[in-house]
Design a protein around this nucleic acid. Sequence first.
DNA 1: AGATCAAATATCCTATAGGATTGTCGGACC
DNA 2: GGTCCGACAATCCTATAGGATATTTGATCT
Lengths: 229, 229
Amino acid sequence: MTKTSLSVGKVPDMPALNDMDRPIVRPSGLAEEVYRRIRADIISLRLPPDTRVSVDSLVRELGVSQTPIREALSMLEANGLVSKRHFAGYATSPRMNRAQLDDLFEFRLLIEPHAARKAAEGMADNDMAALASGESAPSHDAFADMDTEFHRLIAQGAGNHLIADSLARLHIHVHIFRSCFRSEITEEAVHEHDVIIAALRARDGARAEAAMRRHIELSYGRLRDFIKE
Amino acid sequence: MTKTSLSVGKVPDMPALNDMDRPIVRPSGLAEEVYRRIRADIISLRLPPDTRVSVDSLVRELGVSQTPIREALSMLEANGLVSKRHFAGYATSPRMNRAQLDDLFEFRLLIEPHAARKAAEGMADNDMAALASGESAPSHDAFADMDTEFHRLIAQGAGNHLIADSLARLHIHVHIFRSCFRSEITEEAVHEHDVIIAALRARDGARAEAAMRRHIELSYGRLRDFIKE
DNA sequence: AGATCAAATATCCTATAGGATTGTCGGACC
DNA sequence: GGTCCGACAATCCTATAGGATATTTGATCT
């Protein structure tokens, strides 16, 4: 076994074309790398909800020491993706129940329509151009990524870091919930996205806000059916 | 030492006086203890903004190992109270600038009036009774604690964990900002609190929402004056 | 057969030492 | 006086050993 595990990736013969994009190369630590790796595993359901995540197994799997893994798990715990029990190890958070789903969408309804209004009024043109409805999504995962990017761009367009960060955190949980049930309803969502995009392109704040509110309400109705309790 | 495992449970002669208060004794780890200690130091400005916080000094000061301190700092970083730079150590977050203050109060205006409305409609009676306006606050710190508790009770009364957690996180930053300037304006805030309490006691959701919105807007005006830029 | 208790395993938590990297400070040089 | 360079210090990352605790398993008893 060579030390090829978790290669940093800073290849020196990288074509220095767009060095202006990231003028400083900060390795930014192994902890963040591990954090993103574990978070990706949770999002992709490679680590299903309510699954034990031991430090030792991650040490063996990733080939790094305990310290960055513990830091990564602590950050994940602060973001609600894993939970720790004393002397019992970490475990991925259990799947959302009905009450948590209600809370999450109540919260989204408070934030995201307002974000859409502000994005319509002040969003940058290049971000506006990057908006894609997800119509050409070939697979479930591809649509999920596009949906995440869609909402992320709007949240960023609102120009408020707290709004963007909060919504990013929440969308992870929405994504996990949706993946748990292999929800296949994409056609309606694509159409709702298009309505929002049209309002944004027209710089019509009120219409964007209403379209986003309707999209979230309909999305809630689609997801709620998966929970009986 | 001979008896490696001395009868795990069933100790009948344990004084079972107040075992109802804490049926399960979970030490819950040193990391959380350290976390609360450092957070308290940041809130009380014993660690002013933009101050280096090294792991070694905390090891010497608190007398615990590096591991729980690193975990605590990672959690604090996820909550935005400290920031880490690779190979340069941790430091408390710098004081909020104008843009961050604007973002924070825009966010509060989205959440907290709605929380006040829901609290008026569904708040528990004993929580309602615990509301105090802060009129009898003897000192600046005492009023700050009462203010935190006031907003925490209302956020909890909304019955949405995401709302309560988000507002708790934000109020920490408001508290730090206010403490930085030794803001002395308490009389107006006390009166605004009383208006909110009256609406809550009357179970008048619309009035509570309006009163909370006005309180936040006025509070923003008071704090904004401290920043020129 | 089902339940209860004790031993065994796996894991976390702590502590210490050492290597690797970065930021900083002081002095030399133009 | 301003700028560049090297040594120092601080910090992070890794590795290992040992103690403490929760979970699991298996045997015994009713």
